[in-house]
């Protein structure tokens, strides 16, 4: 019996010479992880092609959900447009805001840079919703800002709560760390020698930034941009809590489809489209990126 088992094992080894033992040993966990990652995505994808307002997943196939989305009378494109516009605006503004901070963390704050870095990480320990409700109390009528200004004898604070503008503020606030740290990593990769050499060769401060620092920090900057864009496109809490739903982002349409409308197939189709748009853009950006450089394998 023991001998037979042994022979069988040998036979298997002969059949699978190319797979290293380590990989074979890791196979169960790998399969579990791949399944855990793919199964929910595949289910969503399958639901997107199921009969509208049904639970006939894997049993029906129809394009009705997509034709409903692309129907000219359907205004859901507005939600896509708002989400992508907010995500783009967040990326552009955050790039401009985070760059000086990232530069400071690497080059100027010296021994304080650790503390400053921690201060930017610290809010991540508190739930996003709690922080946003905190901002509501800050901006609300007779709240911290309005009440404080009135107490000081001014006429009161600006009426910014529940407007589209405050949503952008909320997104910039929430996603700042996601732009800052990859960007900081990018700037940290600029060799000091190159900057010194450029200066010795007579380059102006602006030229050094444009020709040396920016291209070398670009991988980090792009990763930060990618991360904030992906997160921003799926943002919902800022529009709900700070914006008082003055704008409906696509994530909210997906949520309504899964809850009040109980149209899981439609919600899945919307989610699939969002994934396609965002991952299409992400893949495009990644194709322009040299990952080896980011990982320092030059």
């Amino acid at each position: 019996m023991a001998a037979m088992t042994h022979t069988e094992t040998d036979g298997k080894q002969g059949l699978l010479p190319a797979i290293p033992a380590g990989l074979r040993a890791a196979a169960p966990v790998t399969i579990l992880l791949v399944l855990g990652f793919l199964a929910p995505l595949l289910t969503v994808a399958a639901y997107a092609f199921a009969t509208p307002r049904s639970f006939d997943v894997f049993r029906s196939f129809t394009l009705a959900n997509f034709s409903a989305i692309f129907d000219p009378s359907n205004t859901v494109w507005m939600s896509f447009a708002w989400s992508l516009a907010y995500a783009s605006a967040t990326v552009v503004l955050l790039a401009a805001i985070a760059y000086p901070i990232a530069y400071g963390l690497n080059r100027m704050f010296g021994k304080w840079s650790g503390l400053v870095g921690v201060l930017f990480v610290f809010p991540l320990f508190v739930s996003e919703n709690v922080r946003l409700y905190g901002w509501v109390l800050f901006f609300i009528k007779n709240g911290v800002l309005d009440g404080g200004l009135k107490w000081l004898g001014f006429s009161g604070g600006p009426e910014v709560l529940y407007t589209p503008g405050i949503i952008l503020f909320g997104m910039i606030y929430v996603y700042l760390p996601f732009m800052l740290f990859p960007m900081s990593l990018g700037i940290a990769m600029i060799p000091r020698d190159l900057v010194d050499a450029a200066r010795d060769l007579g380059a102006s401060r602006f030229m050094i930034w444009r020709e040396v620092e920016l291209p070398l920090a670009m991988p980090g900057i792009l990763i930060g941009m990618l991360l904030t864009f992906v997160l921003g496109a799926g943002a919902i809490a800022e529009a709900k809590i700070l914006g008082g739903q003055s704008v409906i982002p696509i994530a909210q349409d997906i949520e309504v489809a899964f809850t009040y409308a109980q149209n899981w197939p439609l919600g899945s189709a919307l989610a699939l489209l969002l994934v396609a748009i965002v991952s299409g853009l992400a893949l495009y950006v990644l194709s322009k990126l040299d990952l080896d450089r980011i990982l320092g394998k030059r």
Binding site: N74, T75, Q245, S246, V247, I248, D253, V256, Y260
Partner: peptide, 12 residues
């Protein structure tokens, strides 16, 4: 609900 969701989008 569809009509109402569409009406909501016109807020922005």
């Amino acid at each position: 609900l569809e009509l109402m969701t569409a009406a909501k989008r016109l807020r922005g």
